[in-house]
Design a protein around this nucleic acid. Structure first.
Length: 839
DNA sequence: CTGATCACG
DNA sequence: ACGTACGTGATCAGA
């Protein structure tokens, strides 16, 4: 194996770790340890990823450096390093000693100078170097054999920077990094740069002139404007700043590269160090690491796969490659994708060899649906499955991310096959403890396969029609743009809320209706209030509608068409309530309400020989509310099959349901929506455009009639406060930590979520059960018709024309009887040759 | 990379 | 006296 140097900027990383982690972290002796802990978290991660043969940690020395001699204010004005952090440097050095990692420091030089000299030396020996730092200055050290691993936010994310990525990201070469600092300065080091020149301007100038020196040679060619003046005044500062930012790679090194040879952490040292500084989670981790070491020692090549027989216990999907861990007689195999590719294997070959071995076996994977796509149709059948991503979400659906890295980080298990295996084992127990096994095994796990099928099938789109539509919209947008410019008396970017606000509220003097935290609001609500006050308003509203349609639903979708089809991805672990979401493209928010929605939906035709069938639940959320709140009026209305909004109006206004007017029904509809969301008089007032008092009055009268609903709302909130979570009809859980907040707004939000989640989430349970049953029924009946989309309360299928009647019946049946409630679940079924017709 | 806006249920 | 309806994703502008 080629030698690889990991050169670490100790100071940079310690600072990063200190600010990223809470100072409440202490060891047995009440010494602060957050920076040390964070440093090692990053170190373990990076060593795992890069597997260096040499590691050097460089520290700054407290003494002044040659830079202070050049510029007295260098690093002045910097926030003083807190004592809680300073104390941790000796501890870190001690800990590094214990685990067998060498560090170095030299008087009057900074860590980056040492790193520069070390990596330069390594380069001479044709050794690859990776500089690990948060300091972007060090990007100047990038070279043929040198890359920089930049820490991003927190302690878990990094980005590998090479010449290529630096060029892509900033458009400069490593050599130009000092020129950049020379012009823009660096606030954190108190490097002045040229006053008034920021990153944007600096990059633009460098793009043209390359270096500070060349820029000033050609300074007289610049237009004699403000920028020119700034540059002339800042000339001396620019040169000095560049000099300060330059890292000196030619310092005399006290240590040599060989001193930093690294043959792995000392396991005993790790244990002792974790013990000494009370790093409990590391201790756990190392017992796993030790196990993994065993695993790798026994790793065998692909040719030996034949020995596996029925030994497959675990496989996982990871970053587009496959890692396998196979458990026979405690024999493991983990060929990593990179290793296999290095050895000249083709992924398709691997799959052909490995997949048959997986059939019928017990498989654990992170994101099985993605793995199914990766492995190809039907390859993963017949075995038992466990998906650690799905399990993590079912156990707690409120995290922002569920990728393998995040999940394993939260679990504090090592990011390797053994870690994932251990995680699955733990999750199996937790699912039962929390009574979430039903949701997981009976709903989500089977649904994963259904969703895979839907994504694989895809949706047919007419690129030609979308193209025509786009041209039509473009023409209209152009016309609108001209009119808007004329009415405004100037040209501006209508899509820029900032520029639009300037035109509306400053140039045209229209009244300000609402503000956002950054300035004037110009959203539809505002524009509607302004309608009639100026002829420009309707044009702007139309412009907004058209550009939205064009950008998102014409161009956006066209860009994703492959062979006439689009294949959305249904995210099964994205929402806190249990719903699905849809991305790339989002097919759950295709226009339906507006006048032009028909155009868009018409571009989604049924495939040859098929009809689009759409079936949606009618008022499913209010039916669920009727059931769980056990409300007399609500249940009565649904049992009698009445128009629920009309009935609500009749109750509140105390009149016959037949006597309810259209506008009375509309108000009641808004109230019903509000109830489901956790109503407030303010919200209802805003929605209906009535006074807050009238809204409050309406709500009060509603609750007088719908006593069950009122009681439910009180009860669920009380219980949620007590438990800290709520559940859906199927037992799906959502923790709501906001309920414990001392902040009124946050707590109120928690209460509304507590109220809404059992309703929205139960609806999600019901349609998911229905989907599993529909899919099952289609297979069992040997139908060729296919499920293609789900839009929260609606299922869309491609029905083979000769199966149409049976499929419609089967569909309605599965949906209506997905769950037995105390009121019927009503389903409307429609069909058409395009999506637009199937309504 | 965040905020504003707007598409859906 | 607080600020304000639940759940999503895509696009654009502009720091």
């Amino acid at each position: 194996m080629a030698d690889k140097l990991l050169a670490i900027d100790g100071n940079s990383l310690v600072h990063r770790a200190y600010w990223a982690l809470p100072t409440t972290m202490m060891d047995k002796e009440k010494r602060h340890t957050n920076a040390v802990y964070g440093f090692f978290t990053m170190l373990f991660r990076i060593v795992e990823e890069y597997r260096p043969t040499h590691i050097a940690v460089a520290f700054d020395m407290k003494e002044k450096t040659f830079r202070h001699e050049a510029f007295a204010e260098y690093k002045a004005g910097r926030r003083k390093t807190p004592d809680e952090l300073n104390e941790q440097f000796p501890m870190l050095k001690d800990a590094l000693d214990m685990v067998g990692v060498r560090y170095t420091e030299q008087e009057s030089f900074e860590a980056d100078d040492i790193l520069g000299a070390l990596t330069k030396e390594a380069g001479r020996r044709k050794m690859e170097s990776y500089i690990f730092t948060g300091d972007r200055d060090e990007l100047q050290l990038i070279g043929e054999h040198v890359s920089v691993v930049l820490t991003k936010k927190g302690v878990s994310e990094t980005k590998l920077m090479t010449r290529e990525t630096l060029m892509e990201d900033m458009g400069i070469t490593p050599g130009q990094v000092t020129d950049l600092k020379g012009l823009m300065g660096d606030a954190s080091d108190n490097i002045p740069g040229v006053a008034g020149v920021g990153e944007k301007t600096a990059l633009k100038l460098l793009g043209e002139y390359g270096t500070v020196e060349n820029l000033y040679e050609h300074i007289e060619e610049l237009p004699k404007n403000k920028l020119y003046e700034k540059l002339v005044n800042g000339k001396e500062s620019a040169f000095l700043s560049k000099q300060l930012a330059t890292i000196h790679c030619d310092m005399p090194l006290r240590a040599t590269l060989d001193d930093f040879a690294f043959g792995g952490f000392s396991m005993d040292g790790l244990r002792a160090m974790s013990e000494k500084y009370s790093f409990g989670s590391f201790l756990k981790r190392f017992s796993m690491e030790a196990e993994k070491k065993e695993v790798e020692v026994k790793a065998v090549g692909l040719n030996d796969l034949g020995i596996l027989e029925d030994a497959v216990e675990l496989a996982l999907y990871f970053k587009g490659g496959l890692h396998f861990a196979v458990d026979g007689e405690s024999e493991y195999l983990i060929p990593q994708k990179e290793t296999l590719l290095d050895e000249g294997y083709d992924l398709a070959d691997i799959l052909k060899t490995v997949m048959p071995l997986l059939a019928g076996k017990s498989i654990v994977a992170h994101d099985l649906k993605a793995m199914e796509h990766f492995c190809g149709d039907g390859r993963l059948t017949g075995g038992t499955y466990f998906d650690t991503m799905l399990a993590d979400w079912v156990l707690n659906p409120s995290y922002p991310k569920y990728d393998m890295e995040s999940v394993l980080a939260r679990s504090e298990l090592p990011a390797c096959a053994a870690g994932l295996f251990a995680l699955a084992q733990r999750q199996r127990g937790q699912l039962e403890e929390k009574e979430l096994d039903g949701v997981y095994y009976d709903i989500e796990l089977p649904l994963l396969k259904v969703l895979y099928g839907m994504e694989e099938t895809g949706v047919l789109v007419s690129d030609e029609e979308l193209k025509k539509l786009g041209e039509k919209y473009d023409a209209q947008i152009e016309e609108l743009t001209a009119r808007i410019y004329e009415l405004a008396g100037a040209e501006f970017n209508i899509s820029s809320t900032k520029q639009l606000a300037e035109v509306l509220f400053e140039k045209l003097g229209l009244p300000v209706v609402k503000k956002t935290k950054t300035g004037y609001s110009t959203d539809v609500e505002v524009l509607e209030k302004l309608e009639g006050k100026h002829p420009i308003i309707p044009y702007i509203m139309e412009y907004r509608t058209l550009t939205k349609l064009k950008g998102t639903y014409v161009d956006g979708i066209r860009g994703l068409i492959r062979d006439g089809m689009i294949h959305t991805t249904f995210l099964q672990t994205a929402t806190a309530t249990g719903r699905l979401s849809s991305v790339e493209p989002n097919l759950q928010n295709i226009p339906i309400k507006s006048a032009m929605a028909n155009d868009i939906r018409s571009a989604f035709p049924a495939p040859e020989g098929c009809t689009i069938v759409s079936a949606d639940y009618s008022q499913i959320e209010l039916r669920i509310l009727a059931d769980i709140a056990d409300d007399g009026h609500l249940k009565d209305a649904f049992l009698k099959g009445q128009d629920i909004h009309a009935r609500t109006a009749a109750e509140v206004l105390d009149k016959d349901i037949e006597a309810v007017s259209k506008s009375e029904r509309a108000s009641a509809k808004a109230v019903n929506f509000g109830i489901v969301y956790g109503i407030s008089d303010f919200g209802l007032a805003r929605n209906l455009g009535i006074t807050r008092k009238k809204a409050a009055d309406y709500i009060a009268r509603y609750f007088e009639e719908f006593r069950g609903v009122r009681a439910y709302m009180d009860e669920i909130i009380t219980r949620a406060h007590k438990d800290g979570f709520v559940r859906t009809l199927c037992g799906r859980i959502r923790y709501i930590p906001e309920l414990a907040s001392g902040n009124y707004n946050i707590r109120s939000f928690g209460e509304r979520a507590a109220l809404n989640t059992p309703i929205q989430g139960s609806a999600a349970d019901i349609i998911k059960i229905a989907m599993n049953r529909v899919s099952d029924a289609l297979h069992k009946g040997n139908f060729e018709s296919k499920l293609v989309l789900q839009v929260h309360d609606e299922l869309i299928l491609y029905a083979k024309n000769d199966e149409l009647d049976q499929v419609k019946k089967l569909l309605a049946d599965c949906m209506e009887h997905a769950m037995k409630l105390s009121v019927p679940l009503a389903v409307n079924v429609a069909e058409g040759k395009t999506w637009a017709e199937a309504k």
